[in-house]
Nucleic acid binder design. Structure first.
Length: 193
DNA sequence: TATTGGATCGCC
DNA sequence: GCGATCCAATAG
C-alpha cells in the first residue's frame, strides 16, 4: 500500500524536529529487484557547522557540501570500507543539516531484504544503519537522490501514538552529550538500547 | 603524497 | 576483542 509521500518542504526545517517527526514514517526504496519498505524507529540529528560530530562541522568538503544543499535529498556515504550510511538533508538551502536513519522495522519486501542481507533472521534485517541500507539496496548511486521524485522516498506511516526517547548519539567521539538521538520507546527494532 | 581513523558489523 | 577494507580529510 502506497501512503502519501512526504513533500520536500517537510525536510526544510529544524533538523531536530525533522529527526523526531521522521519516527513512524515509512522509508521506501524501489530498484529493479523490487520494492522494500521499513518503518523508521530510530534517527539522529546532525546539526551542521555548530555540531562537532557532523560532517559539516569543518566547512564544505566534496563529500559534505550536500548538507548545505536543498532539503529532502539523500546524503549517502561509505565508511569502514564496506558500509553505506543514509541521511536526509534538512534545513533551508545554505544551512547545513541532516538526519541519520539508524533503524527500521521491516514492512514490505522482506523476502528481498533477507536475500540482500544473506540471512533468514527477520530481527536483524534493518536494526542498524549499515544493515538497513544493505536490506533496501541503498548505495552511493543514491547519493543526491530527491526523495520527492526519485526511486527512494518516505511515506506517511499509519497513525499510531508512541513516546519518543532521546539519548546521546551512537558511535561518535565529539558531541557525545548532545541528546540528538531519537527512537520510538519500547520498539524492538532498535540498533541498541 | 602519506597517514589516520571512521555516524559499523560479525565473528573470535 | 578485533579484523575487514576503502576513502575522506588533514597534515606535510
Amino acid at each position: 500500500m502506497m501512503l502519501r509521500k512526504i513533500p520536500g518542504s517537510f525536510y526544510a526545517r529544524d533538523t531536530r524536529k525533522v529527526a523526531r517527526n521522521l519516527l513512524g514514517k515509512i522509508l521506501s526504496c524501489k530498484t529493479s529487484e523490487g520494492i522494500a519498505k521499513g518503518r523508521i524507529v530510530e534517527t539522529e540529528a546532525y546539526c551542521g557547522d555548530k555540531d562537532p560530530a557532523a560532517h559539516a562541522y569543518r566547512g564544505k568538503t566534496p563529500r559534505s557540501k550536500i548538507m548545505w544543499g536543498r532539503a529532502g535529498v539523500a546524503y549517502v556515504y561509505f565508511v569502514y570500507g564496506m558500509h553505506h550510511m543514509l541521511n536526509v538533508v534538512t534545513e533551508r538551502e545554505g544551512t547545513p543539516g541532516s538526519v541519520f536513519i539508524r533503524a527500521l522495522k521491516p514492512i514490505e519486501g522482506i523476502r528481498l531484504m533477507k536475500q540482500r542481507r544473506k540471512t533468514q533472521d527477520a530481527k536483524t534485517l534493518t536494526n542498524s544503519p549499515a544493515k538497513l541500507t544493505q536490506a533496501l539496496g541503498i548505495t552511493m548511486q543514491d547519493n543526491g537522490v530527491d526523495l520527492e521524485s526519485g526511486h527512494l522516498w518516505i511515506e506517511e506511516g499509519r497513525k499510531e501514538k508512541f513516546d519518543i526517547v532521546s539519548t546521546g548519539r551512537v558511535g561518535i567521539k565529539a558531541g557525545k552529550k548532545l541528546q540528538l538521538r531519537f527512537y520510538i520507546k519500547g520498539d524492538e527494532h532498535m540498533s541498541r538500547i
